[in-house]
Amino acid sequence: MTARKLSISVPPEVEATIKEAAAEEGKPVSAWLAEAAVEKAHAAALHAAGRAAARELVAEYETEHGSLPEESRSRARQFLIEAGLLDEEPWPAAG
């Protein structure tokens, strides 16, 4: 696998944290950052897939049973926000 060089800018305290973490794991900073980026990208993909699955489940339910009551939608949305599975973005209206 060929490696590509990237340049990033971070505040000094973040630089120190990165260097300390890489040293603790016995890795070069570039390898540590590459692994962190892959982990972050993977987590973002899982998050997006989870949100898509939740929307699909709601759509399937609503197709079979009609629109969810607003109170249920609000409770479900609050749960997903508290679980870290949904951002504070507005949810599309029912129907």
Rank of each mutant, 00 (worst) to 15 (best):
S74D: 12
K5G: 00
P12D: 15
I81V: 14
E71G: 07
A31N: 10
D87T: 14
R73I: 07
Y61R: 09
P92L: 09
E56K: 13
R77Q: 11
A21S: 15
R75F: 03
S9K: 05
H65T: 05
T17M: 06
V38R: 10
A49R: 09
A76N: 09
V14F: 12
A3I: 05
G95W: 09
L33W: 00
A22R: 08
L85C: 08
E13V: 08
A31T: 06
W32D: 04
I81N: 05
L85W: 14
I18P: 10
K27W: 13
E24S: 10
L46P: 02
R75G: 00
A76K: 09
E13C: 01
L6Y: 12
A76Y: 10
V14I: 13
I8R: 07
A49S: 06
P90A: 10
E15L: 05
A23I: 02
D87L: 07
A44D: 15
A34S: 13
E60G: 12
V38H: 02
P12M: 02
A36G: 09
A49F: 03
I18K: 08
A53Y: 02
A45F: 07
M1I: 07
L86T: 01
H65G: 06
G66E: 03
G66M: 00
V58Q: 15
K27P: 03
E82Q: 10
I18R: 05
F79P: 00
W91K: 05
S74P: 00
G84V: 03
W32M: 03
H47N: 06
R51P: 00
A36K: 08
E20D: 15
A53F: 01
T2D: 13
A54H: 06
G84E: 07
L85D: 09
S30Y: 15
E71Q: 11
V29P: 02
W91M: 13
E60A: 12
S72D: 13
L57A: 11
T2W: 03
V14R: 09
A44R: 12
T2L: 11
P12Y: 03
R77I: 05
S30G: 02
R4W: 03
G26P: 04
A34Q: 12
V38I: 07
A36S: 04
S9A: 12
A36H: 07
A94F: 04
V10H: 01
S67P: 04
A41N: 01
E62W: 10
S67E: 15
E56M: 14
A52E: 15
G26V: 04
E88Y: 03
E64S: 03
P12R: 08
A41F: 00
E35K: 06
I81R: 14
W32S: 02
E62G: 04
V38S: 00
A76L: 14
L86A: 05
L57T: 08
R77A: 10
K19Q: 14
T17W: 15
P90D: 13
P92G: 06
A44H: 09
L46W: 11
G66P: 01
P12I: 02
S67A: 15
V58T: 14
T17F: 15
L57E: 14
R51D: 12
W91V: 14
F79W: 14
S30L: 05
